[in-house]
Design a protein around this nucleic acid. Structure first.
Lengths: 347, 347
DNA sequence: CTGAAAGCGCTTACAG
DNA sequence: CTGAAAGCGCTTACAG
């Protein structure tokens, strides 16, 4: 159990002042006209004994932690897990650590976590939030914190954001189904005020309106037990036998939906065509493979971290706001292709 | 932008000493014979103005951060994501925060992260590590750090651990395939020295040995690109046409394996039966549903956090070591059931 | 270039 | 019960 080395020990051993060691370590040697020889001697010895400054003390003194708080809906959800992993990697390369946590779409939990982030003195915030936390986030914005929302906006909060154009994504997916000749197209979405959810419904509704077809929307209350949701979806498909295609507004709804359809023994796409928002392993490998509206995850992660870091580094209170909207991509697979034998209302 | 409230402000306002406020806040009012009236007055005012002690300062002074570092192979892997979420929940309830990160099975990255955990002064460590970090972990153990390994042990490092009995799990799975009449049973595993991987192979080998059947092991070097792995597996199944069943040693290998089999147009279980370690959505919903060796995730998370917290709370250097081995469960689904028409070597 | 010193915000013996 | 003070380990003007 070797004793922790302190900056004081370094200074003593080298017979220089603590200030010199600190300055060299913080790259201010030139600025403070410390000789290269001395700077090197310090660096060499620090390396040799493996001295690491106490980050707690450093943060307390400087007010910077080099930690970014990342809040997602559910870190076990492949979409968020992938975004988080990419963001972490890019942040690390720029000298920032990420701490992440899941809100599970629970407003109270999100508020707690926001408080936790502040207690931990994170330098910046990357947030995919449930509604109901507008006031707290506005307060952060007002205090000039570096912050970027992603996946969804917060109504009434004007700040940096990176989102996907959910409305066009869903519009395009619905058009695709219409093009295949499907006419009774249902949308299964989460019951939520979240902006991306509203946008997805809007894209769907617009496509149907253009074809003068009625909407068939089923909203699932969340959070809820897995088994409950599957059961609810089974009921939905049973009372809507006429529905010949279904769009799922998120990847987990898609997964639950497939489970419900499997249990009902529905054949895809013969009895019901399927399209889901977000791609994942299951959709790709399912038989038949599922058509999806894929989000540009890599580009998204890149934009998010870049936006945050510029906010962090522009020490001036520029008040500059960056809002990016990325285009999702429709990946057509067999689950939404009308089979030859199928009757069609087209043409 | 309201100014941050300090303990000093509280003391001044209430016209008491800073010590009094601090003592009350830390629940030492009784011990230090501070009157209930006064204690309540302090608490009430603190609540009223929403004073939160600066955790950085507190940690610097006390040496405790109430943060636990959790390191997994890949947080996007459903097994680890679920364990992490459960651990986080249980830790929070006991007043501890979790910071988690992925090693991606990269020894250098794991070492970096271990350093990072120390820099952040985590109070405890929960680790699923790649090999090659034995020395560093031993050093932590020697310094009396609260620590628990999970999923896999580290050769030569004797410390707290919670693992699943991989050998029996794989033995049972192999026996199940043998019982179904499969005779050319392959094992696809990661090329790795990790203990859980070795145990899985061992369980497989033992079952085959008992039936005097030869092993057919394919090891995949990791980390590697998704596409590469799938391609390698396709080749494997092509050069092993005689193989009538395959065991995948991890869930991601199972996912890649299904992709390879799909591309080859192999029918499951008619042409090749499939069993994977770890359960997930894909396996459950795949058609046919995939037989798995499921790990008791909830129990595991519970045992991990309990073990860590006792280590943390037993301030005495008891040197007590807890090693738990949980039983996995074979969940038989259609992917490993021999179909009627299939020829059998049995009996 | 360097040394002495203040200060980040807290906790906790110590002496009343 | 309380006040003054030291100290956790650092950074950074300030005065040489």
């Amino acid at each position: 159990m070797k004793k922790k080395i302190l900056i004081h020990d370094i200074a003593k051993h080298l017979d220089v002042s603590i200030a010199t060691v600190s300055l060299v370590l913080n790259g201010k040697a030139k600025e403070k006209r410390i000789s290269d020889t001395l700077a090197e001697r310090v660096l060499k010895y620090v390396e040799e004994v493996g001295y690491k400054p106490n980050q707690l003390a450093k943060s307390l003194r400087t007010g910077k932690t080099h930690v970014i708080g990342l809040m997602v809906e559910d870190i076990a959800n492949p979409f968020f897990a992938t975004v988080a992993a990419l963001i972490e990697k890019k942040a690390l390369a720029r000298g920032y650590r990420i701490i992440y946590c899941s809100t599970n779409n629970d407003t109270a939990k999100a508020l707690d976590l926001l408080t936790m982030f502040q207690e931990r003195h994170v330098d910046g915030y990357i947030l995919a939030l449930p509604n109901g936390v507008e006031d707290e986030v506005s307060a952060l914005v007002r205090r000039g914190k570096a912050l970027v929302l992603f996946d969804r906006l917060l109504p009434g909060v004007l700040t940096n954001a990176v989102v996907v154009d959910s409305a066009s994504g869903m519009y395009e997916a619905t058009q695709h189904l219409l093009g295949q000749g499907f006419r009774r197209i249902a949308l299964v979405m989460a019951h939520s005020e979240q902006t991306q959810m509203a946008a997805r419904q809007q894209g769907y509704a617009q496509a149907l309106r253009e074809h003068q077809l009625p909407e068939l929307v089923h909203e699932i209350a969340l959070p809820q037990e897995h088994e409950q949701i599957v059961h609810e979806l089974q009921l939905f498909f049973q009372v809507q036998p006429a529905c010949d295609a279904v769009l799922f507004a998120t990847n987990y709804l898609g997964v639950y939906g497939l489970e419900a359809l499997t249990r009902l023994g529905k054949r895809i796409p013969e009895q019901v065509a399927v399209v889901s928002f977000d791609d994942n392993d299951l959709f790709r490998l399912y038989s038949p493979p599922i058509t999806v509206v894929a989000q540009p995850i890599e580009a998204m992660a890149e934009d998010i971290i870049n936006t945050l870091l510029s906010a962090l580094e522009s020490r001036a209170e520029t008040g500059r706001i960056v809002q990016l909207q990325l285009a999702p991509q429709l990946v057509v697979r067999s689950s939404s292709i009308r089979s030859r034998g199928q009757s069609s209302n087209e043409g």
